[in-house]
Each structure stands twice: as C-alpha cells, then as structure tokens.
Design a protein around this nucleic acid. Sequence first.
DNA 1: CGTAGACTTGACGCCTCTCAACGTTAGTGG
DNA 2: CCACTAACGTTGAGAGGCGTCAAGTCTACG
Lengths: 250, 250
Amino acid sequence: MVSTAHCDTCSLHPLCLPLGLSENDLSKLEKIIRRGRPIQKGEHLFRQGEPFQGIFAVRTGTLKTYTLTNDGEEQITGFHLASELIGLSNFDSDIYNSSAKALETTNVCEIPLDRLDELAGELPALRRHLLRTMGKEIRGDQQMMLLLSKKSAEERIGSFLLNLASRFKRRGFSDKTFRLSMSRADMANYLGLAVETVSRVFTRFQKQGLIDITGNAKEIAIIDQQSLWDLAALSESERSELNLINIEQR
Amino acid sequence: MVSTAHCDTCSLHPLCLPLGLSENDLSKLEKIIRRGRPIQKGEHLFRQGEPFQGIFAVRTGTLKTYTLTNDGEEQITGFHLASELIGLSNFDSDIYNSSAKALETTNVCEIPLDRLDELAGELPALRRHLLRTMGKEIRGDQQMMLLLSKKSAEERIGSFLLNLASRFKRRGFSDKTFRLSMSRADMANYLGLAVETVSRVFTRFQKQGLIDITGNAKEIAIIDQQSLWDLAALSESERSELNLINIEQR
DNA sequence: CGTAGACTTGACGCCTCTCAACGTTAGTGG
DNA sequence: CCACTAACGTTGAGAGGCGTCAAGTCTACG
C-alpha cells in the first residue's frame, strides 16, 4: 500500500521538489518519499487539527485546501494541481491548520516532516528550493489579496481562468481547453463572490465570445484569450480613464 | 555607518530571528547581521526591482511593504512592526518583488542572503525558525484573504485594530492605546476599502463608544475591546441569524 | 425514471464606491 | 509668531455592483 517513490522516472520531475537536485541527492530524497493509495473525490488528505506529519506533492488529480472560519464556514485557500506542494504553511505548528480535500481521484507523494528537516540540512539545493517555493506561495497569496481587494467580479474570474490556463500549459496540457474540477460554489468561495455572480459572469463571457462552456458546465474553452487578458489586467485602468483626477491624487 | 549587531542585548531577542538559538549559534548569527543608519519617514528600505540581497528585521519603527499593480497603483501587502522579518517572499527571485517604505523613523538589521543560506545549513534551529516564520506569513496572508473575501467594512477595520493591538501587546506596549503610524489611505488600501469608508467606520465606532480617537487622528484608544471582538468575528453570524436557511445550505 | 444536488436566471435592495465640498493638521517661509 | 498651503481627514449625496432571495433548469446517480 505504501511504496517508495521513483522521482527519476516521474514526469513531474522538472516541476516538483527534485528540481535542481543532483542524481546523488535525488536518491536520498526518494528514500524518504512515500506514495499511498489514491484518494477518491471528496476524501480528505488531511483535516484541520490533525497532527502535522508531513507535506505532500500532488502527482495526479486536484485538491482544494481550506480553513474553517469562526462561523464554521469554509474558506478555500487554494486549488492544487499536479506537482504542487501542499502543507507548507504548517511549519509553525504541530497540527494542520487547514484541510485538504480531493476534487477528483488524486495521487500524492508524502514527504515526512522529520526526514525532510534532516535532509534540508544536508542538501543546500533542497533547502533553497523549499524557501523558494514558500516565497512563491507568499507572493501568490499577495496577488490573491490584490485580486480580492481591488478587482471586480469579471476581473476576478478572468484572472482565475487565465491562471488555471497557464498552470495547465506548464504541465503540458492545453491552455485553451480544460476541465474545471471545482464546483461553481468552490470558485465563488475562493474568489470572494456569490455563486450566482460566478454563474452570471460565465454566461456573460460566453455571450461575448470570450469562452465556451459545454454541457455539464465543467469543460471550458478559452476562445479569446487576448480579450480575457485585457479584461483581467486592465479594466481597472479602463474604468480609471473616466476619472483620471482621482487616480492621480493617490 | 555600518556596525555588527548585538542580538544578545537587544530587547527583541525573544521575538526576533535569534529565537531558539544557543549562545554559540547566536554569536555566529550576530556576525553576519548588519545595522545601517536609520531610515527616515517616507524613505525606502528597498524598491521593487532592485537586486535581492538580504532580508531585514525591524528594530524600531514601522514599515509598509507594497507592490505595484499593472495600472501603476500601489497595493499594500503588510505593515511591519519591531522584530518582524521583511523580504521573505523574495526567495524565489533575484530581485525584490515589492517595495518597503518607512512610515516613521525606523531602524533595521540586515541579514545578507548568501551568509544566511550558509548558516541555515549549519544551524537546524535557524533553519526551522525560518520555515516557521514563512509558514506564519502564509497563514497570515490567508487570514487576510478571508477578511477581504468575506468580511464587511466594519469587520475588516475591527479585525485590523485588534490585530495591531495584539501585536503591540506582544512587544510590551499597551494594547489599549497606541499610535496608528499609517495614513487612512494606507489602511484603506490594505483593507480593500475606500478612504471615505474607513473614515466613516471610525466615526461610527467612536459614536458607539468602541474606540476613541484624539486630535490628530493618529492616536487611538480601544475602549470596548470585547464588543470589537464580537463585531470582528461574529457579525457574519449575526447577519446570518436573519437568514438561517441560507447558511445551512452551504 | 425519479430525486438530489449543481447550475442558471431574474427581481430587488443594500453596502460601499465615487464625486464633491469642507474642516484640520503640519510644515514652510516671511 | 503668524499666514499660507498642501496633504490629510471628515462628511454628505447619489449611484451602481454584487449579494440575497426565489424559482426554474439541468445533470448525475441510484
């Protein structure tokens, strides 16, 4: 049920944790990595409050991570595709402070915490990669803060779709056609919108010929990527053209 | 102009980077830390795009960090008090991807990147502390995402004030009376609100007897901390009491 | 084939933004 | 020491985007 990994033959090698490691270092890393059984859709990889034992790398599938607010509501903190690391935000605690749930059948590699710590001392490349990855996550979260605090519903959803597209592209998939493994409710939660708003913006985008959504509302095709880019990045300034004075004052 | 540090006599010792280091380890850390001249209000510690040479610990004063959006607008990513580390989100890059500006006269300790990397290999405690600190930052950002995506203006400002209060308390200052070193515009920017909204909420809080603001609008006194807590954490559920059905569906 | 959950669509109202004007503070130079 | 001014902060009026509520449609699964 649990087997050691073979990073050298894994197709995610160039994106994942082993990035930048020598062959010798890599074999050390492989020894501590464990692969468990697949996680089914809806199953938890870990739950908020459980002891923090290790971080995970997604091999196939998609997960969402989320925390619970004081009111018991769910706040989604991220969607995680193949090769992405989960659990990095837990280093300051001995329990998981978020939950991770599979959005479809998913395989992960587990990297036990204690072994990782030792290895980080031995391998400078691994250590730097860890810090880099966490730095990237902080920057991503800050981009998200920007999105949530300054962008309109259309800009948020446009950015979200383009972000997904570019992540799929990096993984060798099409950035024009892909499957949205999360529900509308999950998107809305993540983007700080109401489900109804997400739905409305999707249909608006479709009417404008920016995207195309097939039958089950899961498959999406990006038709006019350029317009989406313009909309996601620049409609703030478009709006600003109407009140230049106000902008210049800031 | 540049002198080495003396962490052992620094009052921030128990909060800052040296946390958990032995005396021997500490002296190694001290050797690489540099103190420069004070930074005046409005001056930059570093600017977005400059080469990433090191991280900083705040000794006295306050800084804000911010990034520039596509439109050239400023997005504030955080306010930093004494003992807090700045620059951690840059590990994946060779340039600073944000700017840091002093909100008042400020002193910092600089930790050069290359030396820090070496030392992180030698000292497991330092290594773990770094990871922990970054983990904490990620969690903080995720709390911020929650605030921005789900909370009302009153909740945001209430949370913000309580957050500041608790950080002051940890540093041995009063959590009842303190100085807001940032402008209303900075607060508004950080919290994703308009300046006018911030101003209005402040006066509303004052009328309700929650806070008191003296003359220059910088000094604030927390009068009714409990009510602020209730408001910041629970007004979501207060509002929910009016439409219970909807909550239960989620 | 039927039901539950996911998604869509429409009507309505409120919170917050925008715009505009005014008051206040701090820093400058006469 | 005071007048002047620019930056900062406050207050009010109006408008619009998005959330809420409600009802209907579609899809998946037993």
